[in-house]
Design a protein around this nucleic acid. Sequence first.
DNA 1: CTTTTATAAAACCAAATGGTATCATGTCAA
DNA 2: TTGACATGATACCATTTGGTTTTATAAAAG
Lengths: 105, 105
Amino acid sequence: MHTPQSAFRALADPTRRDILVMLRGRDLSIGEVAENFDMTRAAVKKHLTVLSDGGLITTVTRGRERISSLNPEGIAPVCDWFAFFEGFWDTRLAALKDAIEKDTE
Amino acid sequence: MHTPQSAFRALADPTRRDILVMLRGRDLSIGEVAENFDMTRAAVKKHLTVLSDGGLITTVTRGRERISSLNPEGIAPVCDWFAFFEGFWDTRLAALKDAIEKDTE
DNA sequence: CTTTTATAAAACCAAATGGTATCATGTCAA
DNA sequence: TTGACATGATACCATTTGGTTTTATAAAAG
């Protein structure tokens, strides 16, 4: 795995995006992550697997726990893809802003 | 629709991301988009519907054709979400870079 | 050693997804 | 008007996805 596709796929689910937000604060075990959701640990673990496949998190075993952390490198492919559009979004949004300003004159 | 979720969902499929790249060049009818893929027009139209639901494209009818265009505003919710992480990615990547540089000294 | 705790792994299920084929509709051209 | 063309809409299908339950394994606690 670890293709750009797997990263985009991982980001498509709201639960997984919430997990990323949670991990921004601090590293968490599967159980700790699961406490914040109304679903089983098994389900949460599956989401963590998808996030790991997408390269968005890394995991290390600590005793009987498995700790997940955000992986800053993992977001790179996604950012690269967006960068391809940046020029477009920027110029179009600027044009839009101009149009609105002219309209309100 | 037009929720952040629908935008993330739309971006999760490689065909749909390819369509966005194609539209960056110029506006296209469904048939023109479909020429670039090995699937039926109906399938392409479904993808365009998902992209439209996500707010990533806009469409206008021109005669019997339906022209799709990139919607620069549509990407905003996605960018906002990433912005929430920007500090994290930046500082961590900087730390990583430092570590690598120190390692090579 | 026994029990609890944290996770792994697999089987299973309903719903969503990505695709097809088919038919209806509206527009352009002859 | 007639026919060709571009799309819309629907029904249908196989696969994937997000979830549960159950069983197994390994580490921590008593």
